[in-house]
């Protein structure tokens, strides 16, 4: 047979079973295919020999256990990850994806399972090493005016500089909104790993990325010294936190994921996984 048919079978009782978490397996196990990028350490990445590793891989397995589902995790390039979901190639996305209005037009999200700030990242010799606002953590939700004032200070400094960002992300949307006319060259990369490499090679003066990913990258010897520059930002155009991406029609699956994430937050699993992979707790505050 040429193509694989996949019906997302959702037992009506599924969500209830998940919520209680402890009941023995009932009915038939559902199969959930989860897509991840496999190139976004430490969220999700590809280890030697090609196996998928990272925070989201561990979390996905934990959530699936709670949902009493059989899960297969597949790697899918970032730029095709949402079309792949809507086309039914898989049933869920766990790839460090933030909830945004733009994405909500096309897909739905579970409740947030992680949240972290975003920032410019530079190597020690970069001319953008000391952007104003260093050490401050600001959210568009509550401190938008302050952020805008800071960005106005940063804008002239970027003139003539080259900034790298992953394509089709909240980060690229942020740069497009605030720095499109700053006289800087904005290069879009298919993966963050690629812009990290170009930053270390000196092709880029800065990147704009999630601080969690930046911190993990800085631990590798070739990227020693990679650090955020300027303020750490979150909220608004940078998204409302990382969640499982789901098709709009799959409301039962959303209910199941919501319940499982709730349980994993409640019993400290997400905090534990977060501390293992990020060395800090990035479980959502709300």
């Amino acid at each position: 047979m040429l193509f694989r048919r996949s019906f997302v079978r959702l037992a009506a009782a599924g969500a209830a079973v998940v919520a209680s978490g402890s009941q023995p397996a009932r009915a038939q196990q559902r199969t959930i295919r989860i897509a991840t990028e496999g190139a976004y350490a430490p969220w999700n990445f590809t280890g030697p020999g090609g196996q998928l590793l990272g925070f989201e891989i561990d979390l996905a397995n934990d959530l699936c256990r709670r949902m009493n589902a059989r899960c297969t995790i597949v790697a899918q390039d970032w730029d095709g990850i949402i079309p792949g979901l809507t086309a039914g190639r898989y049933d869920a996305i766990m790839a460090g994806m933030n909830i945004t209005d733009r994405r909500l037009e096309v897909i739905n999200f579970s409740r947030v399972y992680a949240a972290g700030p975003h920032a410019f990242g530079t190597m020690p010799n970069s001319p953008l090493r000391n952007l104003p606002g260093a050490g401050r953590t600001l959210s568009f939700a509550t401190e938008e005016a302050e952020i805008r004032a800071l960005l106005d200070q940063i804008r002239p400094l970027l003139r003539g500089r080259t900034i790298g960002v992953q394509t089709a992300t909240t980060n690229s949307a942020f740069l497009a909104q605030f720095f499109a006319n700053a006289g800087a060259t904005i290069r879009e990369y298919r993966t963050t790993e690629e812009h990290d490499l170009d930053l270390a090679a000196g092709r880029l003066d800065a990147i704009f990325a999630a601080v969690t990913a930046m911190t993990a990258t800085a631990e590798k010897p070739e990227f020693r010294g990679l650090a955020p520059s300027g303020p750490l930002l979150s909220g608004g155009i940078l998204g409302r936190g990382v969640a499982v991406g789901l098709r709009k029609a799959d409301t039962d699956l959303k209910a199941a994921f919501d319940a499982a994430i709730e349980a994993a937050l409640a019993d400290g699993t997400i905090r534990r996984l977060s501390e293992r992979w990020f060395k800090t707790d990035i479980s959502p505050r709300s």
Partner: peptide, 11 residues
């Protein structure tokens, strides 16, 4: 073209 596909999800 690829960028349009990945941001608007229309092929």
């Amino acid at each position: 073209a690829a960028r349009i596909i990945s941001t608007t999800y229309r092929v």
